[in-house]
C-alpha cells in the first residue's frame, strides 16, 4: 500500500511495526485456541448425542476426531513458544500468552473427557436399552453452554463474563450429585441394571470434571484481565 520511507528505522522497515507483528502472532494463537474450543464443543455435543441415541458410529467419529484436537494443541504450544522467544512480551501480553497456553492444555483434556463419554456410549449400547438418566443430557448441554460462554469471555477478555461462568459451575455439581443419588437408587432397585447405572455415573463424572476445566479457563481470563490468580471453583 505505502511506499517505503528510507528515513524509517531499518528494523521497522523490515519487520513492519513491531507491535503489529506481535498482535498478529497473538491473534493467531487466540484464534487457534478458539478453534480448539469449537472442536471440543462439537465433540462434546456428538458424544452426548451418541450416548442418547446409542449411536456407535457417531461415538467412533468422536474418538477419531480427537487427533485434530491434540494436533491443534501442539500447534498452539509451538506458536506460544515462538512468540515468547521472538517477541519477549511483558505484562498483560505475557499474561495473555500464558493464559492461552494453559487454556489450550485444559481444552485438550476436555477433548479427552468427550472421548471417554463416547467410549461409555459404546459400552452402554452393548447393554439392554434403558432410559438415560435425564440429568445427563442436561449436564452435557450445560457443559457446552459453559464452554461456549468461557470461550466468549476469552475473546472479549471479559472478567465479568468469566466470573459468571465460574459461578454457574455449582449447577453442574448439583446435577452430578443428583445423578449419583439416582444411579445408587437404580442399582438398589434393579440389580440387573448395575452396569448401566455405573456407566451413567461415570459419564456424569466426566461431565463434572469437564465443567471444572471450564472454570479453569474462566480463571485464566480473570488472570489476563486483572493479573490476579484466583481460585473461583472453591
Amino acid at each position: 500500500m505505502t511506499d517505503t520511507d528510507p528515513m524509517e528505522p531499518r528494523l521497522r522497515r523490515e519487520h513492519g511495526n513491531l507491535r503489529s507483528v506481535f498482535d498478529e502472532a497473538m491473534s493467531m494463537v487466540k484464534d487457534d485456541v478458539l478453534r480448539l474450543g469449537a472442536l471440543v464443543e462439537s465433540a462434546l455435543e456428538r458424544a452426548g448425542r451418541a450416548l442418547q441415541e446409542r449411536d456407535i458410529e457417531l461415538a467412533d467419529q468422536v474418538r477419531w476426531d480427537d487427533a485434530h484436537v491434540n494436533e491443534l494443541q501442539r500447534r498452539v504450544n509451538q506458536e506460544v513458544t515462538t512468540a515468547m522467544a521472538l517477541q519477549q512480551p511483558m505484562a498483560r501480553d505475557l499474561r495473555e500468552l500464558l493464559a492461552l497456553y494453559h487454556a489450550a492444555a485444559e481444552l485438550e483434556r476436555m477433548g479427552d473427557y468427550a472421548v471417554n463419554i463416547a467410549k461409555l456410549a459404546q459400552q452402554l449400547s452393548d447393554e439392554p436399552e434403558a432410559p438415560l438418566l435425564p440429568q445427563i443430557p442436561q449436564m452435557e448441554r450445560l457443559c457446552r453452554e459453559q464452554l461456549h460462554d468461557a470461550m466468549r469471555a476469552l475473546v472479549d477478555v471479559s472478567e465479568e463474563a468469566a466470573r459468571a461462568v465460574c459461578a454457574r459451575d455449582d449447577e453442574l455439581d448439583a446435577l452430578y450429585n443428583s445423578v449419583y443419588e439416582a444411579s445408587m437408587d437404580l442399582m438398589a432397585a434393579h440389580p440387573d441394571r448395575v452396569r448401566q447405572a455405573t456407566h451413567m455415573l461415570f459419564a456424569a463424572h466426566h461431565l463434572e470434571r469437564l465443567g471444572d476445566r471450564v472454570t479453569n479457563i474462566g480463571e485464566d481470563v480473570v488472570y489476563v484481565a486483572t493479573g490476579q490468580v484466583e481460585d473461583l471453583n472453591a
Binding site: 487466540k30 484464534d31 478458539l34 478453534r35 469449537a38 470461550m151
Partner: peptide
C-alpha cells in the same frame, strides 16, 4: 474480528 472468535464454530471455520 476473526470468524472463529465471532461464531465459535469449527464447521464454519
Amino acid at each position: 474480528m476473526s470468524l472463529i472468535a465471532a461464531f465459535g464454530s469449527a464447521g464454519l471455520d
